[in-house]
């Protein structure tokens, strides 16, 4: 699905003393199948923007077009489009309400009016996609699961809608490192398998770097940068100006450059950087090794 955001402005509580601009004249396009990261500090409007894309908020000014149809319109056409956009909110496990994992994941597909067989098929597929065994988990009560498992159930309940656009708002917040790695790998595999559009909201640069090709940076409701992840993520100054910590690789790269290592800034992502460091280190080591052998020989 093609997403086009046109001059979108959103004001919370307009006309009151609490009035606040969440988004200011945002324009951007997301092509079908693109993997986009939306980054920015807390309060920059990331969550508001993605809720607009899912058609859940009414724009104060401007509009969001899903394949050319305004996302918030009350028409059947717009509703059909909205249904192809899956949005997992921050801490999606907080929306869990059903008595069993199966019923929880089936809630979305049932709302689509699907028959029982199709619902079962989708629930099983969605649970497997997030790494939960449908046999073992289906009948359990979701409230007795661990935090990480609940997060997976909640994400499965969005995947079961078979979205053409999947939006994840801070999908790994509060997960341990292993759970985070595993979830990111599964989402990556899901996107490759389905070819759907993936939009990830985060202020965790590291995980976005793994998952997306393009990065849109928001600050105070405005787009301050939009470009290939490779170019933007390596720009340590950009992240510091936003008050975010650059990814560890960038910090390492900068530290090495300061020490006089001639590492080109395009060494990105981390595998490439690692290879380059290894190469230069070996070179230096062999030089240094030669020197220290000489030194040892002299002292003897």
């Amino acid at each position: 699905m093609h997403i086009r955001v046109e001059c979108l402005t959103h004001i919370y509580a307009p006309g009151t003393p609490a009035e606040r601009f969440a988004l200011r004249e945002i324009s951007l396009e997301i092509e079908p199948g693109e993997r986009v990261g939306i980054l920015g500090p807390t309060g920059s409007g990331k969550s508001t923007l993605v809720q607009h894309i899912a058609g859940l908020l009414k724009p104060t000014v401007g509009q969001v077009l899903l394949d050319g149809v305004p996302a918030h319109a009350p028409t059947a056409e717009a509703r059909a489009r909205r249904r192809r956009v899956g949005l997992a909110f921050q801490y999606p496990e907080q929306q869990i309400f059903e008595t069993t994992v199966f019923r929880e994941v089936a809630f979305g597909p049932r709302n689509l009016g699907l028959n029982g067989e199709e619902v079962t098929r989708r629930v099983r597929w969605a649970l497997e996609t997030v790494g939960l065994d449908p046999e073992a988990f289906g009948a359990r009560t979701p409230f007795a699961l661990s935090g990480g498992e609940m997060r997976r159930v909640a994400l499965a309940s969005v995947l079961a809608l078979l979205p053409r656009v999947l939006i994840l708002d801070e999908p790994t917040a509060g997960l341990d490192p292993r759970g985070r790695e595993d979830l990111l790998a599964r989402l990556d595999a899901w996107q490759r398998e389905t070819g759907a559009t993936l939009v990830v909201v985060s202020h965790h640069l590291d995980e976005v770097a793994r998952l997306v090709e393009r990065v849109v940076v928001l600050q105070e409701g405005r787009v301050v940068a939009d470009g290939p992840a490779r170019a933007l993520l390596g720009d340590g100054n950009l992240w510091r100006s936003l008050g975010l910590a650059p990814p560890p690789e960038v910090a390492l790269l900068e530290a090495l450059q300061q020490l006089g290592w001639p590492i080109p800034p395009e060494c990105w992502p981390r595998e490439e950087l690692a290879r380059e460091i290894l190469r230069q280190w070996q070179k230096r080591h062999s030089q240094q090794g030669a020197r220290s052998t000489q030194h040892a020989a002299r002292s003897r």
Binding site: Q51, A54, L56, L57, R83, V85, G86, L87, F89, P92, Q94, Q95, F97, F107, G108, N111, L112, S157, V158, L161
Partner: peptide, 25 residues
Amino acid sequence: RAQRARGAEIGSGPPWRRLRSLVPV
């Protein structure tokens, strides 16, 4: 909003369905 994103119709329809639609919230 989160439940609406999952296709729930909250607070619409006849009274009985409207009441039931509040359960997910």
